[in-house]
Design a protein around this nucleic acid. Structure first.
Length: 461
RNA sequence: GCCCCCAUCGUCUAGUGGCCUAGGACACCACCCUUUCAAGGUGGCGGCACGGGUUCGAAUCCCGUUGGGGGUGCCA
């Protein structure tokens, strides 16, 4: 095989971009790039009722986000299926003239009624030999030949379908528009597609499409059907029920690299170490290694990947990446100074503001439970008084602040964690947060003391 | 109903007849570290769906059962 392969990704713009679609796109992208081939993006926009232009832009933006860039030399498109309507109809005409298709004027209702009466499951080729010509209200149906159709699939091996269970399916609707089965094949054919990698839900369509390829006089492409992604009920991920929009994950602060890495591990494994850069996965990916069973999309594991990727970033880059999630009224400081101390506490970028919000508030929002717990011990109040006193004069760096606290903790015979609890809640309002002395250093002496005194006042002196 | 696909810890997977007393990751639990919470470290829990074959030997091959999934549109 000397000609480079041509892969394609053919989503229909009927909603937000689906994580399952993203994984399929990634598989195609890895294959196209590692083989020196091409990734063709074709927007299947023939269902006018459901298609909207903004969804198309959403697909393009989402693909770009996960690294499938229209600027890459391996990328071709977007091509729009709607632009090829003439070719679809021309192919239909050829099938009709070649005897591979025939017209039928039965309505869906009539078919259902007759099928029930005859005890069959669907359309039983009733108009096959009527010799009907084209006309209003008539659909064009494919004349499924006798025999069997063997689909050679790179993921599943050979799958055989008995043609007798494939009914004479519709190629062109009574309103004259081609259906997906036909349009999809004709486009793949005219775009020179050599490899079709798509989700398993299309496997039952494949014998029909292969039959169309053959009737049109072409050898079919190499097929590959990858398993679907499922929810906790092990049902195919659905836009209605499940959180599947790639855009939503992006907006919630998941990193593209983490999402890409996680998606690639669904149905495939990059080896002993599952956190791998795209450059490695791209080269290692093989359809033959793809699993055959549906994979559960586990948000918890995605979160773990995301945390790992966040920790791989340097402080400056992480700070930059978090900026879009900060409230508009916030300046970059003290947030940037705090990045080194919150980085290993973040699972998503969106959590960044919550980690430091006490610094931006004019007064910390006191959590009553934390407060009560911190001041329950007898030593708490007197210790806090000493802290407020000592912090007036000591050097203002986290090491000194800690040393001062340690001195007091020995005097009160408690551990550092307990000794710091009152100060922490006084300054941050909560019992958990970033490292205390580092936060105090960043916040500065004046504001820190102000909060300590505010707490003492609240305690009545 | 019919057609097709699939079946390793709760989840994602490694494993292609002996390297398996089945490895890793997420989750969970415990301990360590520790200024809280995390992160990190160590350990633990936990699986080859079941039944028959084939073979000296089966997670790996074959058959069946059961279970799950996908499809069954003049949607894509």
């Amino acid at each position: 095989m000397s000609t480079p392969p041509r892969y394609r990704f053919a989503p229909s713009p009927t909603g937000f971009f689906h994580v399952g679609g993203a994984r399929t796109a990634l598989f195609n992208w890895a294959l196209a790039r590692s083989t020196g081939g091409t990734f063709v993006l074709r927007i299947e926009d023939t269902d006018e009722a459901r298609n909207k232009p903004e969804w198309t832009q959403g697909i393009i933006d989402s693909l770009a986000w996960i690294g499938i860039s229209a600027d890459d030399p391996h990328f071709e498109g977007p091509l729009f299926q709607s632009a090829y309507a003439d070719a679809h109809l021309a192919a239909a005409q050829r099938l009709y003239e070649g005897g591979h298709a025939y017209y039928c004027e039965m309505t869906p209702d009539e078919i259902q009624t007759l099928a029930k009466a005859e005890g069959v499951t669907g359309y039983a080729g009733w108009s096959r030999d009527l010799g009907l010509g084209p006309g209003a209200g008539r659909v064009l149906r494919f004349r499924v030949p006798d025999g069997a159709t063997v689909v050679r699939d790179q993921v599943r091996g050979e799958v055989e379908f008995d043609n007798s269970v494939i009914e004479d399916f519709v190629l062109v609707r009574s309103n004259g528009t081609p259906v997906f089965l036909l349009a999809n094949v004709v486009d793949d054919m005219s775009m020179g597609i050599t490899n079709v990698v798509r989700a398993e839900e299309h496997l039952p369509n494949t014998p029909k499409q292969q039959l169309i390829w053959q009737a049109l006089g072409h050898a079919p492409p190499v097929w590959a059907h990858v398993p679907v992604l499922v929810n906790e009920q092990r049902k195919k991920l659905s836009k209605r029920r499940d959180k599947v929009a790639l855009e939503q994950y992006r907006d919630e602060g998941y990193l593209a690299d983490a999402m890409v890495n996680y998606l690639m591990t669904l149905g495939w494994s990059p080896g002993e170490q599952e956190i791998q850069p795209w450059s490695v996965m791209e080269q290692a990916f093989r359809l033959e290694d793809v699993n055959l069973s549906p994979a559960f999309f586990d948000i918890k594991k995605l979160g773990a990947f995301n945390g790992a990727y966040i920790r791989m970033m340097n402080n400056d880059d992480l700070g930059d990446a978090c900026l879009p999630w900060l409230p508009e009224s916030w300046g970059p400081e003290p947030f940037r100074s705090m990045v080194p101390f919150i980085r290993e506490r973040l699972k998503t970028l969106a959590e960044a503001p919550d980690a430091v919000d006490f610094m931006y508030a004019s007064d910390p929002e006191i959590d009553d439970a934390s407060w009560d717990k911190a001041f329950a011990p007898d030593y708490a109040l007197p210790l806090l008084r000493h802290v407020a006193e000592a912090y007036v004069v000591c050097d203002w760096d986290h090491a000194t602040l800690k040393a001062v606290m340690e001195e007091l903790m020995e005097r009160f015979e408690v551990k550092l964690g307990k000794a710091s609890a009152a100060t922490r809640v006084a300054v941050t309002g909560r019992s958990v947060g970033p490292p205390l002395f580092e936060a105090l250093e960043v916040m500065g002496r004046d504001e820190s003391l102000r909060r300590l005194h505010a707490a003492l006042n609240r305690l009545g002196g």
